[in-house]
Write a protein that binds this DNA or RNA. Structure first.
Lengths: 222, 222
DNA sequence: ATCGTGCATATTGTATTCAAAATACAGAAT
DNA sequence: ATTCTGTATTTTGAATACAATATGCACGAT
């Protein structure tokens, strides 16, 4: 172990943004529901000032809706809005796939393969929550593998807007099965470094996700 | 004139974000240069609190760099960073073009044609600043024409990161000429509603812009 | 009972204050 | 002269205080 290494000191701002992001995506608030500054601030044990700064960032990402003098609400997303976001995500993931097939390290591909195995186990165990996270991790790994930071950041920010919906949606067993198979193909294309096929598969995969979302939450997605 | 109409009351936050955005993209600050909170706040005649909220938003968009306890600087963008952002912009504009070709109204296409004529006049007159704005307007019109708000927003946010570089770069006469011609083809494809061709042309056009940028500002882009 | 009005309360927006950290600078030691 | 160290100043971070706006409720008129 090295004795001299930089001290990692995360800023309050960054911590708040991160914590709030997962609170809003995985927490109890329904779309359209009001967020109380005061309450949140005291829950986190901070003052309203840094909290508001964090909320503004999340609102600019589209996870929250800020109405002047009326406070913050969980963003509501319509079926059309969902489709719009997915259309963009498809373009982004396709690009990422195309690049990742070319640029990803062997180690990176192995890591994806490991995640895939883990995800299949979680599927067998019926642990949907774990599956959800691992699935997310695979997509992020491919994004990272593109080697394009701007792409990663753009994707992250945009996917924030649908993460809540994704998290809430309970997939049908058949869709779940299908998603697993698609992921197998994705891994295969990545291993073969077949850029065009990978790009194509990721787009199709997202299309499927969108369909499944639109089925399970056609109205009132809380 | 109608006597009863909603009162438009822009929030300080929105005004600040907007004004700061154009200040940073078109103002005197060089990439990497320090931004003084105090000074900015008193220049706008507001306190630091709302100013900081606006700065955080712009930083999350990537126009500024926020370093904890060290304040805010104009973002610096490397040649690689520029290429990364353009890679994503290409994917986004291609998608926009594909959609716009299908969905844009005839009126919208006419508007683009008008802008094109205007831009050519500005080119003839050698008014590069006007050209720059009209050019921007054309691209925005196509984005809007896609009918995908998420796409528009994502593009806007991302292009903020290179707007400064774009604004600073002075194109060579030949590149300028070439860009004008590309735009003619773009208009033609849009008029013909040739989705694939439009998508392709927009990508090529951006590729050209990137090249030209990389030539004019290979190091020290202030 | 229902609708409207005015007031009390709660919430949001902004400014100010205080604390913490970084920077700039002066003086001492080599 | 140069480097180091300690201190003053500046700048940033966060909390508090105050102002403005919106919300909720009670009361009165119809």
């Amino acid at each position: 172990m090295t004795l001299l290494q930089p001290i990692h000191r995360p800023s309050l701002h960054d911590q708040l943004v991160e914590q709030l992001r997962s609170y809003f995506t995985e927490g109890p608030l329904k779309p359209g529901e009001k967020v109380n500054e005061q309450a949140l601030a005291s829950a986190y044990g901070v003052s309203r000032t840094p909290l508001r700064e964090a909320l503004k960032v999340l609102a600019s990402e589209g996870l929250l809706t800020w109405t002047p003098n009326r406070g913050v609400r969980m963003a509501e997303i319509s079926a059309e809005g969902l489709a719009e976001v997915f259309e963009v995500l498809m373009a982004l993931e396709s690009l990422a796939g195309r690049r990742a097939a070319a640029r990803m390290t062997e180690a990176g591909i192995t890591a994806v393969a490991t995640l895939q195995a883990q995800m299949e186990a979680e599927y067998e165990a019926g642990d949907i929550s774990a599956y959800f996270r691992t699935n997310q991790a695979i997509h992020e790994a491919i994004l990272q593998g593109s080697g394009n930071e701007a792409l990663v950041a753009t994707h992250r920010s945009l996917s924030g807007r649908v993460r809540r919906a994704r998290f809430m949606a309970n997939m049908s067993r058949t869709r779940w099965q299908h998603a697993i198979e698609e992921h197998r193909e994705i891994l295969a294309a990545l291993t073969a470094r077949d850029a065009e096929r990978l790009a194509q598969l990721l787009a199709v995969h997202l299309e499927g996700k969108l369909r499944s979302l639109q089925e399970t939450l056609p109205s009132g997605s809380g």
